[in-house]
Design a protein around this nucleic acid. Sequence first.
DNA 1: TCTTGATGTTGTCAATAGCAACATCGGAGC
DNA 2: GCTCCGATGTTGCTATTGACAACATCAAGA
Lengths: 207, 207
Amino acid sequence: MTYHHGNLKQALLDRAAEVIADQGIEALSLRALARDVGVSHAAPARHFRDKKALLSALATEGYLRFSAYVTNAAEQAGSDPVARYNAMGRSVIRFALTYPAYYATFNHPDVTQQADEDLLKSHKEYMEIVLMAAAEAQAAGWQPDIDPLVLMAFSSAAAAGAANLVTNRRGSDIFEGRDMEELAAQIINLVVPPSSQLCVEKRSPST
Amino acid sequence: MTYHHGNLKQALLDRAAEVIADQGIEALSLRALARDVGVSHAAPARHFRDKKALLSALATEGYLRFSAYVTNAAEQAGSDPVARYNAMGRSVIRFALTYPAYYATFNHPDVTQQADEDLLKSHKEYMEIVLMAAAEAQAAGWQPDIDPLVLMAFSSAAAAGAANLVTNRRGSDIFEGRDMEELAAQIINLVVPPSSQLCVEKRSPST
DNA sequence: TCTTGATGTTGTCAATAGCAACATCGGAGC
DNA sequence: GCTCCGATGTTGCTATTGACAACATCAAGA
C-alpha cells in the first residue's frame, strides 16, 4: 500500500454514494468515509474544504450523470419529440430510484441553498437539455402557446415532485396498495402525453 | 423565573422555526435551542426523544398549518371549484415562502424517510383536503377522465416542485431576471386553469 | 541533490447528541 | 395541611464529529 492513495477524491465520492444509498444522507460522516477508504481522518480535507463541498461535488457528479441519463432515455425513445420528452420525464423517476444517493444530494439544503460554480454549471447544463427537449416537443404540437422556459420549469417541477413521492419511504397510506412507480409514470403522462398524436387529439376532442 | 418553564415544548418548536428560517435547517442544534430558550442542555430530551423527533413535531405542526392555509385560500377564492383548486395551488407557493421553516422540514430526510404517527396523520389530513378539492374541480370540468388520486398526486408534485424552485437560494441563472413567484404561479396555471371556464375552452378550442 | 508542491498523518479543540443520576416543583390523595 | 410521586429541569459525563495546525512523505523537475 502506497503512502499516497492515488485516487482518494473519487474513492471518497464513490464511498459517499454507497453510504448515502444504504444509510441515508444524514448518516454521512467525513471521518467514517476516511476510515472506510483506509485513510486518516483529516485526509479528505485535502480534497474537500468541508462536508458541504463534498456534497456539492457529489451533486455535481450527479447532475452530469443525470444529463447523460435523460439524454440517453430520449435517444431510446425514437424520433417523435413529444414521445422523447415523455421518456425523459419517466427517466427522471428511474434515475431517482436507481441512484438514490445522487438524487438525495439534489434536495439537500447544503446543496440547494448554496452555489458552487461547478455545481451551477452542471445543473444549468441539465436544465438546458430539458429546455431544448421541451422546445422540440412544443414544435411537435405540445402546448405550443406557452413560454418554453415556463414549460420546462413546469415539467421539471412535476417530475421532481413525482420523484420525491416515489423516493419517500414514509408510507403515506393514502396511496396504500398503489405501485408508486406506476403512479409516477401517470403523473408524467399528465405533464406530456406519450406521443404527439395525443396532443392533437387533446386539442380537438371532437374529431 | 420558575423552575419549570411551563411551555418548553412549544417554546422549543417556535425557536426552532425561527432558527431554521434565518440560519437554515442544518444549523439547528438542540443545545443552542435550549440555550436560546433559557433552559439547560438536556431539558429538550424530556419533550423530544431526539433531534429527529423535534423535526417531526415541527413538520407535524407545519402540516396542520398547511392544511389550514390552503383551506383558507380555497375559501377566499369563491365558489368555482376549479378556481378554488387553482388558488390552493398558489397558496402552496405562498406558504413555502411565508413559512420557510415549516416547508424545509417537509423535505428533510429525517422527516421524509421516517414515519411518526402524528406526522403521518397530519400529512394524510392535508392530502385528503387536496384530494377532495381535486375531485370537486373534476366535477366542474377539470380533467374529468383521470383517477382523482393520480390528479391529486400530480398537482401536489407540481406544486411542491414549484415551491422548491422558488425556495432554492441557489440562483440557477437560467431563470435570470425572472420573478420566481410569478413563474411558480404560471406553473400552477398549467396544472389547473384559473377558472372552470377555461377548462371548457381547452377541451373544445374551436368554439 | 535540493527544492517544491501535493498529499496524507497525527494531535488537538470546540460543539454536539445522547445518557444517567440527581434536584425541584406541583398536584393528587389522605 | 401533609406526604408522596410523577413530571420537568439540571448537572455531569462520554463518544462522535467537523475543522484546524503542524508535521511527514512522496514525486518530479531544476
